[in-house]
Design a protein around this nucleic acid. Structure first.
Lengths: 140, 140
DNA sequence: CATTCATGTGACAAAAATATCACATGTCCC
DNA sequence: GGGACATGTGATATTTTTGTCACATGAATG
């Protein structure tokens, strides 16, 4: 599995709340599949196993058969890689952007002629805003 | 939307590669919906709009109707919050664990009696391993 | 003003994800 | 050795997600 596919698998795996919950549990220490099943009374054991399979396919969980039980270990490396290679790309944005963003928030976006080209759009990037209820204004 | 629901929405939104790609594009600057549609020749405009809807529902994108176009802005705040509240919980794990992990990797896990209880399992947590092909050993 | 452009929406279709189960294998323990 | 225990697997069902489209509204432009 190459890096792009691995990263895709990681993000897909993280997209399900039950799987995130299992990773949370495994963060505290390895667990047998049966223990994880017991900890999820809302899911059948088959569903749990399937979710663990997804996590394992993504490399986020490593398992080892020990007698008749299977022990599941959390593997934080792919998670770290995914965070670093993708989410980390946004870190330079929010380091100083949020400070700048706060001041721009009050003035609102500058919508003059934004459709005239990409360069102009980049100027309008200063209007990137968290609090502006943009959609409500379009419906108002 | 409360924090848990927001976080769930963020991770679900990130689970689709097309949506991650759109966020990547918006990182460089705001784009009209039409521009995003053109940048995704493999998707219909309806699909693009639907994906943007998911991103907007998760708070990762903020849009503003400007005349007959809609301008989409990246909003990094929910992403940062999700990373910090969830993924950040793993940072203390991989800071020193990886150094420790490297030395443990050669000795392999210590599978003696891991099913006897959670305390024992915590001991076996030392065997948490990235490189061990645990599944292949169970089939061998 | 008429036409073009850009997007919106509800309905529907297809694909993917999630969940369940009958039957099965292998290990543990009394 | 037999029964209990733990998990595995292929098949199937259900739900959710992703994708498409006919029809529509509103803004821009010549």
């Amino acid at each position: 599995m190459n890096e792009a596919a691995r990263q895709d698998a990681v993000f897909r795996a993280l997209g399900n709340p039950a799987r995130r919950g299992m990773m949370d549990m495994l963060r505290a220490g390895p667990m047998t599949t049966g223990d994880i099943v017991l900890a999820h009374p809302g899911l059948s054991r088959f569903a749990v196993m399937q979710h663990l399979g997804v996590l394992e396919e993504a490399g986020l969980v490593v398992s080892q058969k020990l007698g008749r039980v299977r022990m599941n270990f959390l593997n934080v490396v792919p998670l770290r890689e995914a965070v670093r290679r993708w989410i980390g790309a946004y870190e330079e944005l929010w380091a100083d952007e949020l400070l700048d963003l706060k001041s721009r928030l009050e003035t609102g976006p500058t919508p003059k002629g934004p459709a005239r080209g990409r360069d102009q759009s980049r100027t309008a990037a200063r209007g990137r805003s968290r609090g502006v209820r943009a959609r409500s204004s379009s419906r108002g």
